[in-house]
């Protein structure tokens, strides 16, 4: 299996999966899941206190992924660390052999399980990307020289289904100026709308991996629409899940179908299964 950057360079259809570190110290199942995904995906994204819920460090979990022989995408948000901590963690990640970083602003703490936490946001996704670019050239954010540069392949997030779109497109352009080399998107549920979005950004010539969120019931879909910012699951899919005798299998079918359609417009897909990683195998078998 090629690494993420090799696969993108060779213009292969890239498949990444997403895993959240555990809330706690027992990592046996986490490692088992990573192992099961080996040679099935190009890379595994490791979330950083996703939705502002405190979990084990994404840096350490990324290293566990690497140790299993899978290419990690180390997700790092600006919510919990100032510029000193961000840079210092990035240097550490580089020494551990982690190459892919997804630079994120991060959800506000109010969304999570410690809503009273101090929101840091000393940098944002854009200036974090710039910082990574500097570390790659051998200097820190303040241009102080480093003993040994990093060699990160840096990506960023993208919300293709957002409205109004134009401010988000301006933010995308800014992230590209800041050095984003690839993008992974929020969940996509409409391949046609995604294709027209990709036409709008064609001039930027950036690799985009479309987000695929595995649905397993109509209730879950309705719940996601109501509570997760930026997610818009169309009624037609909710009806399909509701009408199906086996919504779980239907969800896998929907995901596989979307991936098939997205092969035309996206450089790859980023599969989010939220705890159902064993289903990634079934999804990939069907495309």
């Amino acid at each position: 299996m090629k690494t993420l950057s090799e696969a993108i360079r060779h213009r292969e259809f890239v498949v990444t999966a997403e895993l959240s570190p555990r809330k706690g110290t027992i990592v046996a199942n986490f490692i088992k899941t990573v192992h099961a995904l080996k040679d099935k995906v190009h890379a595994i994204n490791i979330t950083d206190n996703q939705r502002a819920v405190m979990r084990m460090s994404s840096l350490v979990a990324s290293y566990l992924v690497l140790r299993e022989g899978v290419d990690p995408v180390y997700q790092i948000t600006c919510r919990d660390r100032n510029r000193l901590a961000l840079q210092s963690d990035l240097l550490g990640a580089s020494v551990l052999g982690i190459r892919n970083v997804l630079a994120l602003t991060g959800d506000h703490p109010s969304a999570g399980d410690a809503p009273e936490a101090k929101p840091v946001f000393d940098l944002d996704a854009t200036t974090l990307l710039q910082t990574i670019g500097k570390l790659n050239t051998g200097v820190d954010l303040n241009d102080h020289p480093l003993k040994g540069a990093t060699s990160f392949f840096a990506g960023a997030a993208l919300t293709p289904q957002t409205s109004p779109l134009e401010p988000a497109l301006l933010a995308l352009e800014r992230k590209i100026h800041a050095g984003a080399q690839f993008f992974q998107t929020q969940p996509v549920f409409d391949a046609g709308a995604f294709a027209s979005f990709m036409e709008k950004i064609a001039a930027f010539r950036v690799p985009v991996m479309a987000g695929i969120l595995l649905l397993h019931s109509a209730e879950q879909a309705i719940n996601l629409n109501a509570h997760v910012p930026g997610i818009k699951i169309p009624d037609v899919l909710i009806k399909r899940l509701a009408a199906s005798p086996d919504p779980h299998a239907e969800g896998i079918d929907i995901a596989a179908g979307l991936i098939g359609e997205l092969k035309q417009s996206a450089q790859g897909v980023h599969i989010m299964t939220v705890g159902q990683e064993k289903d990634i195998h079934s999804i990939l078998e069907r495309i």
Binding site: G106, H108, S110, P119, G230
Partner: peptide, 29 residues
């Protein structure tokens, strides 16, 4: 902006509103 972002909007903007309070317009919009 509840995150004090100098380079927004962030991905939490939905229909022009803020992820922290969907009754408040995203200041970057």
């Amino acid at each position: 902006c509840p995150k004090g972002l100098l380079n927004g909007p962030c991905g939490g903007m939905v229909n022009g509103m803020c992820e922290v309070d969907n009754t408040v317009a995203c200041v970057w919009v």
